[in-house]
Design a protein around this nucleic acid. Structure first.
Lengths: 112, 112
DNA sequence: TTGATCGTTCGAGAATTCTCGCACTATCAT
DNA sequence: ATGATAGTGCGAGAATTCTCGAACGATCAA
């Protein structure tokens, strides 16, 4: 049966740079993207365990509508993954460059 | 004599990714940066000949405070240039990647 | 000095965005 | 069916940002 929740996504060639940059300009969302880059696909709740659900939906929707992430429903939870290939095809190197330049929210575990 | 107007700039290592991305997420500012990338240093008025001056100041200030551009006073006008080296050192490839992915505001002259 | 020009600052209003509670639907286990 | 849990949509208030006119000081030409 068709999944109860269907998510709209922009086509790869419809992804626009200003919207992507805006999506990534929010520290909270940027840390979400960072987590998504480390693991492959995560349960949405892992992106903000302490956030109110409606706030979490707001940010994941924004990331989805800007073309940064792909969202699919699985049971009652929703799984989220970074649109690595699409972003790489459209803006080569962007995601890696941005994530490399962002060392604040997630102190690497390869420390100490 | 010291220039009448002095501009504050963040150090290269103080430039933060979220602020840079936010600065570049505005189409108007992004087109400004594109123009700055083509020419070396431009009179601020070239970045927005039709804009009210206070609006222009607003955007150039934001670009300056986020570390994207360097501003200096020259007589009564102000000259603006992209902080290419600093941005490249901090976020290698970012500016080029962003500008490559942005083909809207400035149709290349190598057309028709 | 006079007058024109340029950038800045301040203020206000419009427009976005952010956050979050609440009600609702869907899903799952019992 | 019942109850618990997950995500969504709506609405409202707070916080930012955007835009722009008006006043001001600095600069330049005459």
């Amino acid at each position: 049966m068709a999944p109860s929740r269907v998510y709209e996504h922009p086509e790869a060639d419809e992804i626009a740079i200003p919207r992507v940059l805006f999506a990534l300009s929010e520290p909270l969302r940027l840390s979400m993207v960072q987590l998504l880059a480390e693991r492959g696909e995560v349960d949405s709740i892992e992106l903000g365990p302490d956030l109110p659900r409606s706030t979490l939906t707001h940010h994941t929707s924004l990331l989805r509508e800007s073309g940064v992430v792909f969202v699919r429903a699985e049971g009652r939870k929703c799984m989220i993954q970074l649109r690595r290939d699409d972003l790489e095809a459209r803006f080569p190197g962007l995601i890696n460059t941005v994530l490399n330049g962002y060392q604040e929210a997630a102190p690497a575990k390869e420390d100490a």
